[in-house]
Nucleic acid binder design. Sequence first.
DNA 1: TATGAATGAGCCTTCATTCAT
DNA 2: AATGAATGAAGGCTCATTCAT
Lengths: 207, 207, 207, 207
Amino acid sequence: MEVNENQSIEQIILETAERLFLEKGYESTSTTKIAREVGCNQALIHYYFRTKENLFNRIFEDKFRMLFQQLFSTENLSHLSFTEKIRHIAQTHFELLEKNPRIPLLILNELSRQPEQLKSLREKLHAYPEKAFKELNGDLQQEIAAGKIRNCSLPDIIVTMISLNVALFLMMPVVEQLLMFDKNQKKALIQHRKEENINFLLAGLRP
Amino acid sequence: MEVNENQSIEQIILETAERLFLEKGYESTSTTKIAREVGCNQALIHYYFRTKENLFNRIFEDKFRMLFQQLFSTENLSHLSFTEKIRHIAQTHFELLEKNPRIPLLILNELSRQPEQLKSLREKLHAYPEKAFKELNGDLQQEIAAGKIRNCSLPDIIVTMISLNVALFLMMPVVEQLLMFDKNQKKALIQHRKEENINFLLAGLRP
Amino acid sequence: MEVNENQSIEQIILETAERLFLEKGYESTSTTKIAREVGCNQALIHYYFRTKENLFNRIFEDKFRMLFQQLFSTENLSHLSFTEKIRHIAQTHFELLEKNPRIPLLILNELSRQPEQLKSLREKLHAYPEKAFKELNGDLQQEIAAGKIRNCSLPDIIVTMISLNVALFLMMPVVEQLLMFDKNQKKALIQHRKEENINFLLAGLRP
Amino acid sequence: MEVNENQSIEQIILETAERLFLEKGYESTSTTKIAREVGCNQALIHYYFRTKENLFNRIFEDKFRMLFQQLFSTENLSHLSFTEKIRHIAQTHFELLEKNPRIPLLILNELSRQPEQLKSLREKLHAYPEKAFKELNGDLQQEIAAGKIRNCSLPDIIVTMISLNVALFLMMPVVEQLLMFDKNQKKALIQHRKEENINFLLAGLRP
DNA sequence: TATGAATGAGCCTTCATTCAT
DNA sequence: AATGAATGAAGGCTCATTCAT
């Protein structure tokens, strides 16, 4: 990928398309609209990406990977207690969503639009962070054995964490409109729920 | 075109459209496709509902109402403790979603497609279960005062409950495909999470 | 044609259709709209008139006949001078248009839409007022011979009269909007032109 | 699709559309029909002009401007007497209509179809020939004062002129069919009325 | 590399008309 | 006499894609 000045045109298309796909979804984003916003010819989109589907998938897979792979970051957390590790992971996850609040909806929609896509994604996601998972699980079993945490599985903890975080951003637009929130109220709610999600998650672990 | 004993063509269109809208969303469901599945002329769709938007809204408002109004059912739970009430509500909510697993995604999408609709929905939902809410909140404050529940607000409890339940069904298609679940595994997971959601919710309330 | 109370439904359809056709023209008036304004079923229009074209023609021929046959009314004008007769005819014609200002445009449009229709109209208009025409022409020749009127043909006089009168009502909507007339100004202009048309017509006859 | 030496496809579409709009009017001319006659895909019409309305307006405004702005040509007629000037203007106007006989009907129809258009047209026609008008009016007042012309206003003279000329071409299709004229007879009639219109106009001015 | 031109397929919608009742 | 249901055809328009340049 060549870079002219700061951004190659290909990159501009990718970013514009990403924004539009996130705003309006796949169906409601036409290549015409992308081209108009990029300020280029409609045919150029197809010159670079052959099809709209291609363009979308390239963006989509990036986002999907980002959302799933960063779940167990490569950071070294080994100096922390299990509870502290979970708190840290949950916080990081929340902040990732805070920066990308519309991606979950995009992913859910696209996977219901063409479920076959998951097959190829599954293969590409092979870099599963098995090591980090094992370490965490070891910690957890110790805590349970020590009676410091109630008996529950690591996957359940993770699902609960993801559910709480993701659901907040998925439902935020509805809540926002339903309660007629302004930007500040919205921000405040998000910060409040950031704490409350962790509260519930950790409180729910106690024996 | 023959009409089934119990079902008028209008009803068949409604049901077919509902299924397709839930499967593919608004944009990806064409009136042509609906007509093809119903087995009638495309013009008939417009004969009964004038516009695609009309047809959709008729379905959508029903679903939306169902999901929100049954949140606090009118059942009398006053003989139960606060914790038992929450457990019951969470279970009922979960079972409602179990029967309508695709509706949350539909709602999230539609409200971002045409946010103005929320205005009219807000008015139509005036039958807000204020009484039930107040009773619950009274119970909660007593429990907190008695030191039986940690200090947290009723809205936070409800948001947590909804998040856990809704997120499960929103993410289920992804999980299902990602982990290559068959129907039984899926069922088992749902039942397991049904309990686990309640576990986390109630465990998270303890002081 | 049966009459219920004051008006048969057939009559109501005819009158409603007439109004709509005059307002919007043939193409822009749908049987749906007619039915809606009549307050009846769409199929009823076709029950009575078989096709939209039929309904239109029935109205159209009436209007066409009215506009052309009343040109030489059956009134006895023989006690008047030629000039007085022309004045009377021109006035009558003008007043006919005043009451039916949109009919000329309807006729012009329809005859350019389906010119074949004129064939059948020509036959139906056989009741051409030959006698009145001959009498007028006799008068005219006498006046010319007596040097009281310049040498010109009766058809030319009639065409001039029709042109002046018809053109006024055809162009009135444009003039009205272009000069931003209100109703009173419009009325005043029409009355003024009524005189002026006759002025020009009669002044143009002088030798 | 091949492009003629001198004519771009866009130009061909414009000319074909103009012909069809003039023949059948706006409503009865479909973009499909235009495309068929042009020999291109229907989508191409929309590629060049986006909407049918756009295409029409582009043609319409040209025609409208042509018909109204050339009314008082910029030619220098100051060496002529008032009567001669009027004769010249009337002739020019007549000849303009002779070359564009169907435009008046188009204009009348369109302005009743969407009267708001007049607003924008009025602004675009600002180049109103005020100077020519004032000069003519000065001449007229002198002639009236000198007793050479009867007391009448310039607008009345102009309206009479336009009425006579326009009405002829508006009514010609009716006359043509009603009297079963062939082309020669039609031509002869037009030439005859060209003189006769001027005769009536000028004769009508005499005191 | 980049684009203007062109197209086939599909979209939602409206229409006049028919038919069984 | 009157109507609800149903339909084929056509309308304007948008879309993703292709191709020659």
